[in-house]
């Protein structure tokens, strides 16, 4: 993945700041990369290199940890994150059908991000709201008792939001043009 101009500097600065607040023992590794992901949304390669240097461990050890745990992402996530609960209760109440619907509508598989980076689709183990199954987390908001129809509804809301925003932007641009 290519970084945009300025991104590398930002990654380095943020990582350095986080590293400053931690010791250099091996057990700091997971808390450090958790914080990096919280700030940057994912674990960029330069950040992992920087962490490895600070803790004086091989980079591949950081990579081992980053690829082992579900939490860590090596690529930037989509603008909207959709997490379908695949806990037992949700599965029994049709969670897999909901996942299918998202896959079909977004034309991506679980674990992927749409090419326009609007949506990423993930599965999560039990969210702990089994009585409300099947459950979907849309940008951390819990959607309860989701049906395939609701899937369409959720995505439609985002589409409308986006097109309205585009209209506003377009209008602004046009108005800007008139002024010139």
């Amino acid at each position: 993945m290519e970084l945009l101009p300025g991104e590398l500097e930002q990654i380095k600065a943020e990582t350095a700041e986080i590293l400053q607040q931690h010791g250099t023992e091996r057990q700091e590794l997971i808390p450090i990369i958790q914080e990096i992901q919280e700030r940057l949304g994912y674990l960029p390669k330069p950040a992992m290199e920087q962490v490895a240097r600070a803790l004086d461990i091989p980079e591949v050890d950081v990579y081992s940890v980053a690829t082992f745990y579900n939490q860590f992402r090596l690529n930037p996530p989509g603008k909207h994150q959709i997490k379908v609960c695949m806990g037992t209760a949700c599965h029994m109440m049709g969670g897999h059908i909901v996942m299918d619907s998202f896959e079909r509508r977004l034309e991506i598989k679980e674990g992927e991000t749409t090419p326009d980076r609007e949506f990423s689709l993930e599965r999560v183990a039990c969210v702990g709201c089994c009585a409300l199954a099947p459950v979907v987390l849309v940008d951390e908001k819990v959607e309860a008792k989701v049906s395939p129809i609701r899937v369409d509804g959720i995505l439609l809301t985002f589409e409308i939001e986006k097109s309205e925003q585009e209209k506003v932007e377009e209008k602004e641009q046009q108005e800007g043009g008139v002024e010139e």
Binding site: R26, L29, S64, V65, F68
Partner: peptide
Amino acid sequence: SIEGKPGV
């Protein structure tokens, strides 16, 4: 995992 390694 607490020691900073993969949870094996």
